[in-house]
Design a protein around this nucleic acid. Structure first.
Length: 105
DNA sequence: AGTAAGGCGGGCA
DNA sequence: GTGCCCGCCTTAC
């Protein structure tokens, strides 16, 4: 199956009020170094709002990019109840791992 | 089929 | 702690 497709699928599973990282997703898909490809996939995702792509941020907590602009991304994150401070989300608080048994953060 | 671009990550200055 | 650079992977042209 196409990598991009899996990315979108996985993105759908991010719980509301949580975020994950590009690298975490890459790992979850068995390709730890494809973090960049993940971003690429999310960027060109044609599927509308079925995919909460805004819940994917950078590993350092910075918001990262967004097709409709980072501003919009932040807005949506806030809408999910996620606070952004100094342009970064608190991963300690909102990080979601796909790895079974792995506690958030 | 070659190549460049992209919502990244980690290491180093 | 911030900023830059180089490496990685997938997809469009």
């Amino acid at each position: 199956m196409k990598f991009s497709k899996q990315v979108l699928k996985l993105t759908r599973k991010i719980p509301r009020g949580r975020v994950t990282t590009y690298s975490e997703m890459a790992r979850a898909l068995g390709n730890p170094k494809a973090s960049r490809a993940v971003g690429n996939a999310l960027n060109r995702n044609k599927l509308p709002d079925l995919i909460p792509c805004y819940r994917v941020v950078r590993s350092d907590g910075s918001v990262g990019g967004y097709a409709s602009g980072a501003k919009e991304k932040i807005r949506r994150l806030r809408r999910d109840g996620i606070g952004i401070e100094k342009g970064k989300v608190n991963l300690e608080k909102h990080f979601h791992s796909f790895r079974k048994g792995q506690h958030d953060f």
